[in-house]
Nucleic acid binder design. Structure first.
Lengths: 206, 206, 206, 206
DNA sequence: ACCGACGGGACCTCCCGTTGTT
DNA sequence: AACAACGGGAGGTCCCGTCGGT
């Protein structure tokens, strides 16, 4: 059971902890609970991670990687800007139904919990949210360039998408009410199909 | 005089604790910090509140009352549905700049932190979010009735507004990035002025 | 039991902890043992001291104050340099038989245990040992001035006295063998009575 | 080859651990640090030693053997009692400058750290200190017999030498102040050269 | 012979809530 | 009404020792 399993165990710890932390809270969840879901004792866990923060950090990055991977795959599979945006929206819509991500968006969750006295976690959340916002922004810029979308402030439009979707995920998750995410997604989808009002110019301008 | 002082002190505790709890976290904030901002010792606080949860509960309801009051005043001061919606949006836009509410929306904050093992707090957040959503919904229903807004699923439309605005507040607060809330608000304002696409029917239908 | 007893309790903790720490070890002794001798629970102790190190620090200074007090009283009660030196030696001879100091010299004990990663404790021991050495040195300087003692390097002579006596205390304490301290004390007493060889000049010269 | 390697490795562990334990503390030093200096993992060390205490025990005896060897060599190389005593003193003077013994006298170090719940270590230190004291005592007895030294209580005189020298080593090591050991050594050397006051009888009598 | 994954326990710290007291 | 001494418990960390494997 020795050496060879080390990598696997470490990954197993991260994977099993991921869902727990994202649902119960990165800071609130005690090592005891982590011990329970991993089936390991404190000694076993601390053999793989120097500190609780290290484990949280790695778990967070694992969760972010799940999202990043989906985004990357989506951007490759779809060609048009509209389809890409609709796909990104779909990723958010599916979030609460994913087993490990049913706690909501890990980025917002950790951002909510991490304080200024945990600079590593804060920095990680900042970077992660930029990843998402950046993806939206780049798609929008490209869509505008090729005339598929109406001209607009891409950064603002991206921020609007992310904020609305994150809000939808958050409310749906926390209040167990699917309507929030559904409503937001539908609204955004309509805007996308409309090309941000390509003909009527109702998009975010300045 | 005893009773009068008691009531005043109790209220003072709530008011002084409100901003702290909403910014630092309802569950994360320790009694020590609460003691610091109130200037009272443990005994003094527990004399007025049977438990920490009671204080949290009352503080939360105080914060919600601040929001409710603004909403009520706004609904009274404005006559048209569009103006009322724009006013509600403005309330959210001002949230992060309010001294006591700079921690973000208290409802979402507490909803985020409260677990299933705290049914009272959960119930309070559920009720509070319905208050907000209900306000939007009623305005929309009225607006549609009088023809000021395009026909739509009012509940969904309200959910969409609240989710987007809450998301904007959340991201702006947690990432210290005003663009999220600004972008969301502008987008919603545009939709409102458009009367949810009164002429082109781009609003949330089913 | 409230406010008034605070000072007394704090002092009681220090006094009861003093003997324990000096005998069992400043670093080795666990909070659990300190709880036992003080009769308080962790909460009670941490109410009075912010950290274990703080308690150790204060306990150490209490023990040093006991020694300092004896030295001060001795220096006042005796007039001649020889009598003062004999008195100082006697203080060391009595150390292992003192209830609270039976663990040996607190200065050397803590100096032994404190590492470089505890600068406060290190600094305290440095200061404390200088207190002892300084007392010897000043007496010797005065004794030489008035011709009661043979001319010598006072600092060296003082260091010799302290080292020998500390060694005697240490060995007697750790090996439970009174002869070490007795032998050292007798030898030093003989040198003192001899006035450091006032007539034959066998004292430490350069 | 297996057995040979085993013995060599075992000795290597002891030698590499010796300096570390004597400087950092026999009890305080963690297995992690021991692993670091030996370059072995836990399993490797525990393969050679049944317990941490066994390793400490053996390391201690190795360090004592270093001292014993020096003493034996000195006693052989010098003929006269005075020269032997001066040589013994010199051994102590050199202690803090020896690479492996720069932590001070291993006997006193371990005696300080070992508690009553470690009878083996206690016994080992008792035996070791008797080795040193016995060496002094035998030299003194011989010196008195042949008239090189003034008649005296040899056991006491030996105890005095050892206590003073150990004290000097201790203070010099712990306070990083060479004067203590230097002063003690000079004083004792003077006494030796004087033959313990062969002519004036100032030596330890009863 | 040696590695290293893991169990299990002890330690310090901090926190909430009670209670005697002023 | 308010203070503050104290109990009791839980959390994160680290450490020693075992044992399956190479």
């Amino acid at each position: 059971m020795a050496k060879r399993d080390s990598v696997a165990t470490r990954r197993r710890i991260v994977e099993q902890t991921a869902g727990l932390l994202n649902a119960t809270g990165y800071m609130r969840t005690s090592m005891t609970e982590i011990m329970k879901v991993t089936g390991l004792q404190k000694g076993g866990i601390y053999h793989h991670f120097a500190s609780r923060e290290d484990l949280v950090m790695e778990t967070f990055e694992y969760l972010v990687s799940l999202v990043r991977e989906r985004v990357a795959r989506l951007l490759k599979s779809e060609a048009g800007a509209k389809d890409k945006l609709l796909g990104l929206i779909r990723i958010f819509k599916e979030l609460p139904f994913d087993a490990t991500l049913k706690g909501g968006c890990p980025i917002l969750n950790l951002a909510f919990e991490s304080e200024e006295d945990q600079p590593r976690l804060r920095a990680a959340t900042n970077e992660a949210i930029k990843l998402i916002t950046g993806a939206f922004e780049r798609v929008i810029v490209a869509g505008v360039s090729c005339g598929e979308l109406a001209p607009c402030n891409a950064r603002k439009q991206a921020a609007c998408f992310v904020a609305a979707l994150e809000g939808g995920v958050m409310l749906t998750t926390r209040f167990n009410e699917p309507v929030y995410l559904t409503a937001v997604a539908e609204s955004l989808e309509a805007q996308v199909r409309d090309g941000f009002g390509l003909t009527q110019a109702t998009s975010l301008a300045n």
